[in-house]
């Protein structure tokens, strides 16, 4: 079960990160285009500024699930380190379950939120706001799925045995 959830989490995360990388690349190109337009092309495009915000939101929110998979999200650990090991694991499992509840809430109400964007105009490409608003429920669902998988993978042991040795900081220092 533990191995299965570890593999599933990693697989989903690899796919999500590929999408996120493409969104980031598109974001960079979009802002470059906005500058080049004003300075060089003079097309007076209405959409680079708006699209940049929506690409940024999609990329950042999708990356939240990646942070869940890699246990990147920052918390204070000073207090729980004082607790005995078994109790610490129980507390951390409970915390994971509460976080899961939070993301299920966001995903559930996020669906209605995305639907509320359908009749509204995004002011670019004649599109509605629904595909942009959908970032919230999609990202929350992914985060919820990742939370279940990493809960099974770590069972509260992640503060004592971090799941990734190659923390992003170690790579660069």
């Amino acid at each position: 079960m533990r191995n299965w959830s570890e593999r599933a989490s990693a697989r989903i995360n690899t796919a999500v990160e590929a999408i996120v990388a493409m969104l980031m690349a598109a974001l960079v190109l979009d802002v470059w285009l906005g500058v080049a337009d004003r300075y060089y092309f003079h097309w007076q495009l209405p959409w680079p500024e708006v699209l940049a915000r929506y690409l940024m939101i999609w990329a950042a929110l999708l990356a939240v699930s990646s942070g869940v998979a890699r246990r990147d999200h920052i918390g204070l650990t000073a207090f729980i380190m004082v607790l005995p090991y078994q109790m610490r694991r129980a507390v951390l499992i409970l915390i994971d379950i509460l976080a899961l509840a939070l993301f299920i809430y966001v995903a559930w109400f996020g669906i209605a939120f995305a639907q509320s964007g359908a009749p509204r105009q995004a002011m670019i490409f004649g599109a509605s706001l629904a595909p942009f608003y959908a970032a919230v429920p999609v990202a929350a669902t992914l985060s919820a799925v990742q939370l279940v998988l990493v809960l099974l993978r770590d069972m509260g042991g992640h503060v004592d045995q971090p799941p990734f040795n190659d923390h992003m900081a170690e790579k660069i220092s």
Partner: peptide, 25 residues
């Protein structure tokens, strides 16, 4: 070069007057 809101009609008005219209946050 005039800054307008991201509102196509505002851009259209400025362009019809001969100005360039760019949306800016």
């Amino acid at each position: 070069r005039i800054r307008t809101m991201t509102l196509p009609s505002h851009q259209t008005i400025m362009q019809s007057l001969g100005a360039e219209a760019y949306p800016l946050a």
